[in-house]
Amino acid sequence: MAIQSWRIRDRYYRLVGSRCASCGAEYFPPVYRCRECGSDKMKDKEMPKTGRIVTYTQLHEPLPGFEAQVPFYLALVELENGARVLTQVVDSPDEAVKTGAKVKATVRRAKVEGESGQIIYGYKFIVA
């Protein structure tokens, strides 16, 4: 996990996704091939840090490593450039987490590898 995360830490910390050099479509997570025009000329690009909730859920049964957080919100966020990010939504009152809500990106602890392993950081969003 530590090495897998290290490799893409700029994606996790700065939302570096990809942009199609041919048609300009932007993606997060990054893609190898443009879904709009089929081009494989994709370049890294930092995404805008604000967007809106397309849909969301509150998860009650966690994956290992997320037990302490339940229940927590997961949302599909559409960024200003149209890219869609699956993300946790934190520090937001229940009534604010809803479809269409404006959100902004932050960086949080995403996963902690026990007492002695590494701390993996990554993007989460907050209702703005």
């Binding site: 520090d91 932050t106 960086v107 602890r109 701390i119």
Partner: peptide
């Protein structure tokens, strides 16, 4: 700080 915050995350913000 929330459970997913620490000095790193707050410093970045």
């Amino acid at each position: 700080a929330s459970m997913d915050e620490d000095t790193v995350t707050m410093a970045i913000e």
